[in-house]
């Protein structure tokens, strides 16, 4: 097991799900739920003759950052692309549920519980969404998760963290979008439809899915940052993500409402203004939108190192 101190400087992109979970919270503070030692692999993969993992591709548990209890969900992209099946789904759903129950119990006991003592949920995504081997159960779990996100509103901040290889796609793409705050590194990707499907639908001329640059420009973190779809763009290290979460952990819950991109009628109206912009601009490439947002040399900005990008990027006024 990598030492916690070594994990901090590790690349978030390189880190596996368990290392991310351990590294995002304080040293030695993580308790895993339904971990590999509990041996709860998916029962649906084995019968198909496919490899199983004892944690079903997701690490769930609770840790602490300072005084804040941090419920962590961390998906493992190397195991079937981080896809959500029945066990995986139950674990992610119940983690949020436990956080809400903890908050309810805390407030019932002490209505003046300081914000920093109240739990938060951090979800490190690495997934393409529903696991086809157990598709129906995966689908239902997505809906359950969305329900928990809404139930957590105004109580427990639910923070999306995206900076792993697979990105966050499919149904999990809108789960992430529905959260209170989104933190990404420049290697993160967030979207709904995978590049191959877009190519199939629109033709290779319009969208060449083998063009990774295009794929990243369309759904990558820099673009999401400029669009306002991710709140924070951090460097690719466990420590950088952790520091951002630590900043968020102590904020009053009300502050998160302003970070949301959807979840209220007012937010929907803002998004509709963006849709109108999409119609007006008819962008061929995300960089067209960057230019519209006031970035003069979007291609160079896209290639710029992190610090330069953060210093220069003009975000789209929503």
């Amino acid at each position: 097991m990598t030492k916690w101190t070594d994990l901090q400087s590790a690349s978030f992109l390189e880190s596996n799900a368990r290392d991310r979970a351990l590294g995002l919270v304080d040293e030695g503070s993580f308790t895993e739920f339904c971990g590999p030692m509990d041996r709860r692999p998916s029962p649906h993969l084995g019968v198909l003759g496919d490899a199983v993992e004892y944690d079903d591709g997701v690490v769930t548990g609770v840790g602490r950052i300072g005084e804040t209890p941090v419920f962590v969900i961390s998906q493992e992209g190397r195991f079937i692309g981080g896809a959500v099946g029945e066990v995986h789904g139950a674990k992610i759903v119940n983690t949020v549920r436990l956080a809400i129950e903890m908050l309810d119990a805390m407030v019932a006991k002490n209505p003046d519980t300081p914000e920093a003592h109240k739990p938060i949920v951090v979800f490190s995504f690495e997934t393409g969404g529903v696991r086809l081997h157990e598709a129906n159960a995966g689908l239902l779990a997505h809906a359950e998760f969305m329900d928990q996100v809404q139930k957590a509103r105004g109580k427990v901040p639910v923070i999306a963290v995206i900076g792993s290889k697979v990105g966050c796609f499919g149904g999990m793409g809108f789960v992430a979008a529905a959260m209170d705050a989104i933190v990404m590194s420049e290697f993160g990707r967030l979207g709904l439809t995978g590049p191959e499907v877009i190519e199939q639908e629109m033709g290779r001329e319009e969208f060449d899915s083998s063009d990774r640059g295009l794929v990243f420009r369309t759904t990558g973190a820099k673009h999401k940052y400029i669009m306002g779809d991710c709140n924070f763009l951090v460097k690719d290290s466990v420590a950088a993500f952790r520091a951002q979460i630590a900043d968020l952990a102590v904020l009053p819950i009300a502050d998160f409402e302003a970070m949301r991109r959807i979840g209220s009628e007012a937010a929907v109206d803002k998004q509709l203004a963006l849709v109108a912009l999409a119609v007006e601009l008819q962008p061929k490439d995300s960089l067209d939108v960057w230019a519209h947002a006031g970035n003069e040399a979007p291609a160079e900005l896209n290639d710029a190192p992190y610090e330069e990008f953060i210093a220069k990027a003009q975000r789209l006024a929503v």
Partner: peptide, 19 residues
């Protein structure tokens, strides 16, 4: 399932409806 949809965030639209 389009390119403009991904650029502007189709995921937000369906997410908004679910919320």
């Amino acid at each position: 399932p389009g390119k403009v949809e991904e650029i502007f965030g189709m995921n937000k639209s369906t997410g908004a409806y679910q919320l």
